[in-house]
């Protein structure tokens, strides 16, 4: 594993988001949606909190992130440029990591403007800065997991739209799945709760930084990247 190759690939992929309008459009859409959900209810509820912003994040991200990752591999397969990349002296794992990290970084760049929300709110009242901090830690892990899943989805097909739909379906499914547990017996419910992104993300954004939740997100990231590297190897 050569760090330099990963950095080179990551740099190129990261830049590519800013070359085409797609990156800016996605940032714009995200900020409009998240901003609207936050501020439309803020003045009605009269409470200074980012709870809605974070609780809606998994739902919004499960569509935003696959839109960014869909081109990672699908486009290279389609244009044939993967044949060039795949015959360079680099491993598929380096390619997978480089691409995934680049998209993740882009998503984090997308989140930077949202830092203005807590800053704006703190002028209105007493904002719990600990909650905001753990919320952003959760956002970091959540977007990492979704990016890894989306990148994996992109290796499955040549068609970017299909890659988007697969990625979004998986992300959305693991987000909403813990909403169904009420109907299920306790045994199965706890298993489903464990694999659900929503459950772990809620824990973190509530301010509980438990190692179990962190390990959960890191293992999704790790497994997806491994699977991506393997899958591309074919």
């Amino acid at each position: 594993m050569k760090i330099n190759s990963i950095i080179s690939i990551g740099k190129k992929e990261f830049k590519s988001y800013f070359v085409s309008p797609v990156g800016f459009i996605v940032i714009g859409i995200y900020l409009v949606i998240s901003g609207w959900f936050l501020f439309s209810t803020l003045f009605l509820s009269k409470s200074v909190t980012l709870r809605d912003f974070f609780s809606l994040m998994p739902y919004i991200m499960s569509f935003i992130i696959p839109a960014l990752t869909m081109k990672s591999f699908a486009e290279e397969y389609k244009t044939g440029s993967y044949e060039m990349l795949g015959t360079l002296p680099i491993t598929t794992m380096e390619i997978a990591l480089g691409k995934m990290v680049a998209t993740w970084l882009f998503v984090l760049v997308m989140l930077i403007p949202t830092l203005s929300y807590p800053i704006a709110l703190s002028t209105l009242g007493d904002l719990d800065s600990g909650l905001v901090f753990s919320g952003y830690i959760g956002a970091l892990l959540l977007t990492g997991a979704f990016t890894a899943v989306g990148t994996l989805a992109s290796t499955l097909t040549k068609n970017q739209i299909v890659a988007f739909l697969i990625g979004a379906a998986i992300c959305f499914f693991i987000t909403i799945i813990d909403g169904m547990v009420i109907l299920l017996p306790k045994m199965i419910a706890s298993v489903i709760q464990y694999i659900s992104v929503g459950y772990h993300f809620t824990n973190i954004s509530k301010g509980i930084l438990d190692s179990r939740d962190i390990i959960y997100f890191l293992s999704i990231i790790f497994l997806s990247i491994m699977a991506t590297g393997r899958r591309v190897n074919k």
């Binding site: 590519s16 070359v19 085409s20 044939g80 440029s81 044949e83 060039m84 015959t87 360079l88 002296p89």
Partner: peptide, 18 residues
């Protein structure tokens, strides 16, 4: 082996936005 070989695939697929 990949280090020893330079390869130009059919129809030269390059990254068109670079």
């Amino acid at each position: 082996i990949k280090k020893k070989i330079g390869y130009l695939p059919e129809s030269a697929p390059l990254y068109s936005d670079m």
